[in-house]
Design a protein around this nucleic acid. Structure first.
Lengths: 146, 146
DNA sequence: GCTTGATTGTTGCCAATGCAACCGTTACAA
DNA sequence: TTGTAACGGTTGCATTGGCAACAATCAAGC
């Protein structure tokens, strides 16, 4: 056996997964139950609602999603009338995606839900620890982007 | 619009998912590539390797996995000769799962890999921030268990 | 202009996941 | 003892997700 024993409970990827899954599941009840929406669909809506019109490739880069999932989510959201595709002047391959008015209503409701849930999580941790957590997570993500 | 605008980039579940997915993917290369193993299979092995013989239900509780996934992982690991099922004296429904010698070899290799990867992540963050992160994640998980 | 390589988005296919229903066993209470 | 609920584990089925291959478009060099 090597010098150090493996400590599963302190293994960062394991802890990250556990935390992401528990909080994710808890929040998913908000959109799965009410709107029967996929995690990827919610992410697409969140990006469009938060940052305005954007192409699918741009969502992929920002949200770190597979283009397959984004493509299918866009299709589904369009079928529901929550999203429209527009042309991009400079590039005929790309599509400018944006929310319809009813899509925006859904986004607003979910964003309000998200704000509440985030506040709950931060209350559970205490504001100082929550801020440190967010900062460390951001650092992890950007460090891995190399 | 409500008093506060929704801040996607600071939304804890979003950050948690991003961090978990990037680090998870990075580490998954270690077991997917070398041993063609599923995330759930790796978790089952990790628990058995770390904590010794255990029933499937116990793994579910500790790892927060669905019993379906654990059941299929156990089957797959048994087929590969990395795991054996034993009887539990007091309960004829349950099975005591444990690693075979060759299963332990695989576990040892992966655990060493995990130790290296964890050290890399902690180096990226700095030890103080890493410790704070682990502590906050643990708190989040146990708070959600209510 | 033409060719080559990268990029945008879609589709087919297979692996992985989750839910619900199920069987056998156990615990417990009337 | 017998009936009922809970628990451990498996299986079927539908959904989700990712990879690879593809058509269309763009960009850059010759």
């Amino acid at each position: 056996m090597a010098g150090t024993e493996f400590d599963l409970e302190g293994f960062l990827p394991y802890l990250l997964n556990q935390a992401a899954e528990t909080t994710g599941r808890e929040f998913a009840a908000a959109y799965r139950g009410r709107y029967a929406m996929t995690r990827t669909q919610w992410r697409v809506m969140a990006h469009l609602g938060r940052f305005g019109a954007m192409t699918a490739a741009e969502i992929c880069r920002r949200a770190m999603e597979e283009k397959t999932g984004v493509s299918r989510s866009v299709q589904a959201l369009e079928d529901r009338g929550w999203l429209i595709r527009g042309a991009v002047a400079e590039d005929r391959r790309a599509e400018a995606l944006s929310l319809t008015p009813s899509g925006r209503e859904v986004y607003d409701a979910l964003a309000a839900e998200a704000i509440r849930f985030d506040a709950l999580l931060r209350a559970r941790l205490g504001e100082a620890r929550a801020a440190g957590l967010a900062e460390a997570l951001t650092a992890l993500v950007s460090a891995a982007r190399d």
